[in-house]
Write a protein that binds this DNA or RNA. Structure first.
Length: 430
RNA sequence: GGAGGGGUCGCAUAGUGGUCUAGUGCGCCCGCCUGCUAAGCGGGUUCCGGGGUAACUCGGUCGAGGGUUCGAAUCCCUCCCCCUCCGCCA
């Protein structure tokens, strides 16, 4: 979240950024609550100081008469304190609630625009492959190599679930292994983390309270299923002061991700592009504020490295102000080309959240052993999201007979250079 | 799931209603003393918030939140976490 001090001192900038995001946030109400709160706080603290002094005098006093008088006096002061505290608490609650729902500020370098049509392609790498046949979408190829079973997934769990088996289950696992190995080799620390987290953790990472509708949760216990490993990695240092000399810290974790996808109902219903459960390799960085801009570039470079190593045509897109996520001040998406549907697939989103999550999660670090604590900057980036990378590999490497060539870097993981087609092409609908 | 024990300053501990402004030891920092080092002596050492240009000052903070009281680390209630043993279990 933004600190109330920051909002107070930069009210115009915050108002502007909320407009740029199309965020419906009442900054004036927040400022009003802040002012009322501080005025009331001064009253309460003044009375408490008075009571503290009197109580000390009562403790030291030996004259029963004097004690009685002062106790009676303080009884009234106590009542007044209680009355004002109640008002203070309700002001605090409303202020806190509203602050939790204010999104991050916008980095000055972010292109302006109301929605994704204003996003800017900043770099394109590789040429889409020229096919001398009509490339198939991944859901047809999946059937042909006997690796994808949508119907059984739906029978087990309903729509937006699927089973990967045989060569495609192995392809996905090989990709995960490859990505983790590459990032670890680049100095990232691999982490295995809980997939279910408490409400407090989701609040700290910014998923709650605003995005409750997109989360799965246990009905009886305080468990939410993580929608991304980012949630776990934000909370790794929650309520800590990181000692001097530890930053930057760079993590990589592979986890499943669970999303209700209520917000995108009806979109991308075919195949494995958008499911309720999917695998993702996630990178995460804690760093000093001065370093976060360079770290963001580094994360984008890592995501690009994976796409390049897999020889997938890809591009980097700078999200515009209206398309930024709640936590992010600046975001680059990485998209890979999927010839089967002739579209760009988002496989990574790299964001600099500045100190926004550090405040929510109460994470600080010491720049030097005796220096006062500061909030670190925190960044996250997929590296990469699996189902869409699987789609891109399948569709880019497909052969006329429905078999799939294995990218060079994956061959040592899969022990083969080709995934054979064993079924005929499914009947083409309409 | 059952039974028991426990959460106090970086670490270890003391503290069962009022000089607790939370003591002591260790660690760390500053200073003094001292050929050097060690020891010794003196001082400092949580974090958050309010007010103030500042020196400074006020409030809160003993796992969390409520409550009792003029006054709570201390008493009461609810919850969380950790440890030990039993049960169950991949």
């Amino acid at each position: 979240m933004l600190s109330i001090q920051f909002i107070r001192e930069n009210a115009d900038r915050v108002r502007r950024d909320m407009l740029l995001r199309n965020a419906d946030v009442n900054i004036d109400r927040i400022l009003q609550l802040d002012e009322q709160r501080r005025a009331l706080l001064q009253q309460v603290e003044g009375l408490r100081a008075k009571r503290n002094a009197a109580s000390k005098a009562i403790g030291a006093s030996k004259e029963p008469g004097e004690r009685e008088v002062r106790i009676a006096e303080m009884r009234l002061v106590g009542d007044e304190i209680r009355r004002l505290e109640e008002k203070l608490r309700s002001l605090d609650d409303e202020l806190q609630q509203r602050l939790y729902e204010v999104p991050n500020i916008v980095d000055e370098s972010v292109p302006r625009g109301p929605d994704e049509t204003s996003n800017v392609v900043v770099e394109t790498v590789g040429q889409p492959r020229q096919f001398d046949f009509v490339p198939r979408p991944h859901w047809e190829l999946g059937v042909m190599v006997d690796g994808l079973d949508i119907e059984r997934g739906a029978r087990m769990s309903g729509s937006r679930f699927y089973v990967l088996k045989g060569p495609l289950a192995r392809l996905q696992r090989a990709l995960i292994q490859f990505m983790l190995d590459e990032h670890v080799a680049a100095g990232f620390t691999e982490a295995y983390v809980p997939y279910m987290m408490s409400e407090a953790s989701l609040l700290a990472s910014g998923q709650l309270p605003k995005f409750r509708d997109n989360l799965y949760r246990d009905a009886e216990e305080d468990f939410y299923f993580i929608p991304t490993a980012e949630v776990a990695l934000v909370n790794y240092h929650r309520d800590e002061i990181i000692p001097a000399g530890r930053l930057p810290e760079r993590f990589v974790a592979h986890t499943p991700c669970f999303r209700r996808e209520k917000m995108s109902a009806g979109r991308d219903v075919r195949g494995i592009k958008r499911g309720h459960q999917f695998e993702k390799v996630e990178m995460f960085v804690y760093c000093e504020p001065e370093a976060s801009s360079a770290e963001l570039d580094g994360l984008v470079a890592r995501a690009k490295h994976i796409a390049s190593a897999l020889e997938l045509p890809h591009r980097v897109v700078a999200l515009c102000t209206g398309d930024l996520g709640f936590n992010a001040a600046k975001t680059f998406d990485l998209e890979v080309w999927a010839p089967g549907q002739a579209e760009w697939l988002e496989v990574s989103s790299a964001s600099n959240c500045l100190d926004f999550q550090a405040r929510r999660a109460n994470i600080r670090y010491r720049p030097a052993p005796d220096a006062p604590p500061r909030h670190p900057h925190m960044l996250n980036a997929s590296g990469l999201a699996l189902p869409r990378t699987v789609i891109a590999v399948m569709e880019n490497y497909q052969q006329p007979d429905g078999s799939i060539e294995v990218p060079h870097v994956l061959r040592r993981y899969l022990g083969t250079d080709r995934i054979a087609a064993v079924n005929p092409a499914p009947a083409v609908r309409d």
